[in-house]
């Protein structure tokens, strides 16, 4: 089976002086669930749109099951499901007609599965898309993305704006529908709890590149924070490759480390004479905050 998604050296800008992606390498393997995280504007949506062939790369390659999404758009889209926060569905169609249209477009469409999902969500079949609530529209988009049992599901902040119960339902359905089928999922989210529940691996986009990737189970064991007294510069730790970020917080400096908290703290103390006030492992949400949060 070819790799569901393989990205090499991907570059894309919207305005010349403002590159978004500056050489991204990323693979999503068969059956793998990857959580794509990063600040607003880090390029998560851009990357997903490039993977779908909705945007043209300015450099590098995108392959979906070995195919070029721009050269073979139909073959690629038949094997992929896509749900995005800002997705535009044909607003004047009613739910039933939209699903009928998808059934025509996708040879592997499973009408029974689509039916059971409509039932489950209790969607009004004859209502037009523009008259649906935000949550209902997202549910329709999910049915459109899942009923042909895609081999790769691309979710761009699919659950943002949904209430916690609807978000949970959305996740459960994606898992239920695709687990066992060996489908791969790439999803971007700001909900770190969802990422921890669903993903096997996180990919963190920052500065136009993949700044960090790690199996979800190993994040806290592999990343830690040392709070150091005084204001230190990143350059002072330049020779330590395991220092991921130096973040000044008033009279203290947060040093974000790749590694076990105790070992790293020992080295900072012994090698640099840092007074370590506190050191602790960083679970995903805290790691995200420490890597991206402001200084003061």
């Amino acid at each position: 089976m070819s790799t569901p998604l393989s990205i090499r050296g991907l570059r894309r800008h919207y305005r010349l002086e403002q590159p978004v992606l500056e050489g991204v390498d990323l693979d999503v393997r068969p059956g793998e669930i990857v959580g794509l995280i990063g600040r607003n504007g880090a390029g998560k949506s851009t990357l997903i749109k490039l993977a779908l062939g909705l945007l043209q790369p300015h450099g590098g390659t995108v392959r979906v099951f070995g195919l070029d999404p721009l050269a073979q758009p139909v073959e690629v889209k038949r094997r992929v499901g896509y749900v995005a926060e800002d997705q535009i569905l044909p607003s004047t169609l009613c739910v039933d007609d939209l699903l009928a249209l998808h059934a025509e477009l996708f040879p592997t469409w499973e009408p029974a599965a689509a039916e059971s999902m409509i039932e489950r969500f209790g969607l009004p079949r004859r209502r037009r898309i523009h008259a649906l609530s935000k949550g209902q529209a997202r549910q329709v988009a999910l049915i459109c993305a899942l009923a042909h049992r895609p081999e790769l599901l691309l979710l761009d902040e699919p659950a943002s704006g949904l209430d916690p119960a609807a978000r949970r339902e959305f996740l459960e359905l994606s898992i239920e529908r695709l687990s066992g089928a060996g489908s791969a999922i790439l999803f971007s989210s700001h909900q770190m709890g969802d990422v921890e529940r669903l993903a096997q691996r996180i990919v963190f986009l920052d500065g136009g590149r993949v700044a960090l990737e790690c199996p979800v189970d190993e994040i806290a064991a592999r990343h830690s924070l040392a709070v150091v007294r005084g204001r230190w510069e990143a350059a002072q730790f330049a020779q330590l490759p395991w220092v991921l970020r130096v973040r000044r917080r008033e009279d203290f400096t947060h040093v974000v480390l790749a590694g076990n908290a105790d070992d790293a703290a020992r080295e900072l103390g012994a090698g640099f004479g840092c007074t370590i006030v506190n050191s602790r492992p960083l679970p995903l949400e805290e790691l995200f905050v420490e890597l991206t949060g402001a200084e003061r």
């Binding site: 459960e172 687990s179 066992g180 529940r197 669903l198």
Partner: peptide
């Protein structure tokens, strides 16, 4: 089963398998 528990807890089936 892996799948049943995964759905129940809303976590990935591979996590249950692990």
């Amino acid at each position: 089963s892996h799948r049943e528990l995964a759905i129940l807890l809303a976590v990935a089936p591979l996590t249950v398998k692990k």
